[in-house]
Amino acid sequence: MPNPGGEDSLTPGSPAAVQRLAHVGLRADLETLGFGIAGHGCATCIGNAGPLLPAVADGVETRGR
């Protein structure tokens, strides 16, 4: 379920994966839920989604997590 206070994205492994999602009817469902395709391959999972919220960045700096 999308987070109303954050951004939701989907980064399939390849353009072919996006085509497959569309072919089986899941891409439209995911977009309806608020998940837009941000790119292909490694992205949000490894931190390529932009800066952290200040409270999260502070927690990482002060507590290491």
Rank of each mutant, 00 (worst) to 15 (best):
T44Y: 14
G6W: 10
H23R: 12
V60L: 15
I46N: 12
L52S: 02
L30P: 00
A49T: 01
G50L: 03
L33H: 04
L21G: 04
A57P: 03
C45D: 13
S9N: 02
G6V: 02
M1T: 04
G25W: 08
G13A: 15
M1I: 02
V60G: 06
R20V: 11
L33E: 11
G34Q: 04
A43P: 00
P2W: 07
G41A: 06
M1F: 04
T11I: 05
L10T: 09
G34E: 08
P12R: 13
G34K: 01
N48Q: 11
T32W: 06
L33V: 01
T62I: 11
T11S: 13
G6N: 07
Q19I: 01
G59H: 13
I46T: 15
L26Y: 14
N48F: 12
G36R: 14
N3Y: 08
R20C: 05
V24I: 15
G6L: 05
E7H: 01
P51R: 15
S9W: 10
A57H: 11
A17C: 05
R63F: 12
A22G: 09
D29E: 12
A49S: 06
L26C: 04
G6Q: 10
P51H: 12
R65W: 09
N3R: 05
A22H: 10
P2D: 04
A28M: 03
V18W: 05
S9L: 05
P2H: 09
G13F: 14
G59I: 07
L53Q: 14
G36M: 11
E61D: 14
M1V: 02
I46H: 12
L26P: 01
E61V: 15
L33M: 08
A17M: 06
Q19E: 15
A49C: 00
N48T: 08
L33C: 01
T11L: 04
G5P: 00
L30N: 00
D8A: 14
G50N: 03
L30T: 02
L10G: 04
G41Y: 12
L21W: 10
